[in-house]
């Protein structure tokens, strides 16, 4: 039987599961999961460690093959699709031998149709494009610095620029704000929201931070571990653009509180330490 992707759906998981190892030692990282994301959607995955959040993200970005089931992106099986994907991790992973601008430009060097024009435009159009993006995230004047000259928060901003420079249709964010201080984090949330409103990529965000998920996402999927699966799909309908002040409103607090209760109640019973 061949699965058929549904119309109007940009990302779709049909019974997709991931198992590591074989036989008795097999560990199910993700139980068969169904998931649909519209084009331009902003979905956050929250849950305890080991609940398969990152596994879903890796499957959708094509880094990990599903052990069973199907993963479709843009109506085709993942990997075959000519979709532009951007990715940012908790670790900014800048290449230390390149200036910040060249790091940001890296995707244009790789991804078609830009790669064909890279040599011709790297010092003109593409350069301006990188500098514009760096200005938007508050890194004006840092394009010619090397990564070791920047702080962790600045590197993370640059990493976001690198994830967005090739105008990705699909943006994968794997806890990109996790290692930052609260004020930098909140500022980057606002920047992220602005960028999303302006460009409307389809975003999948993995996070531990419930406030972050509620501030940024249109939908929050709460996950449970052992085996990893989705237990709740909450719509978040606060008006955009959202502000940090909003996060202290009763509705917002009620939402994060509900998410928190879900996660605490779905957490497996503590086992004796190994």
């Amino acid at each position: 039987m061949t699965a058929i992707p549904r119309a109007n759906t940009f990302v779709e998981l049909q019974g997709a599961s991931v198992t590591y190892g074989r036989g008795e030692r097999a560990v199910t990282a993700l139980a068969p999961t169904d998931l649909r994301m519209e084009k331009g959607d902003f979905v956050a995955l929250v849950g305890p460690s080991g609940c398969g959040k990152s596994t879903i993200l890796k499957m959708v970005s094509g880094l990990l093959k599903a052990s069973s089931g199907w993963v479709f992106v843009a109506g085709r099986e993942v990997g075959a699709e000519p979709v532009r994907v951007g990715m940012a991790f908790q670790n900014p992973t800048m290449l230390p031998w390149m200036r910040v601008r060249d790091n940001v430009l890296l995707p244009l060097k790789i991804v078609p149709p830009f790669r064909g024009e890279f040599r011709a435009k790297r010092n003109t159009e593409f350069r301006d494009r990188a500098d514009d993006l760096l200005n938007q995230v508050g890194l004006k004047g840092f394009a010619d610095k090397y990564p070791w000259e920047l702080s962790g928060g600045m590197l993370q901003r640059a990493s976001l620029c690198r994830a967005l420079i090739h105008d990705p249709e699909l943006l994968m964010l794997d806890e990109p704000f996790g290692a930052l201080d609260q004020f930098t984090r909140e500022e980057l949330w606002a920047i992220m929201q602005d960028l999303w409103i302006a460009r409307r990529p389809t975003v999948l965000l993995v996070t531990h931070d419930l406030k972050e998920a509620s501030y940024l996402a249109n939908r929050i999927l709460v996950m449970k571990a052992r085996p990893g699966h989705v237990v709740e799909d909450c719509a978040v309908d606060f008006p955009r653009p959202r502000t940090i002040d909003m996060t202290y409103s009763p509705d917002f607090v009620a939402l994060t509180q509900r998410l928190r209760e879900l996660i605490v109640s779905v957490r497996p019973k503590a086992e004796p330490a190994a």
Binding site: L63, V85, T93, L106, H166
Partner: peptide
């Protein structure tokens, strides 16, 4: 080479 660095490249279909 750091695996995350390779992941970034792989998602770009490098």
């Amino acid at each position: 080479t750091e695996p995350e660095l390779e992941d970034v490249m792989k998602t770009l279909r490098a």
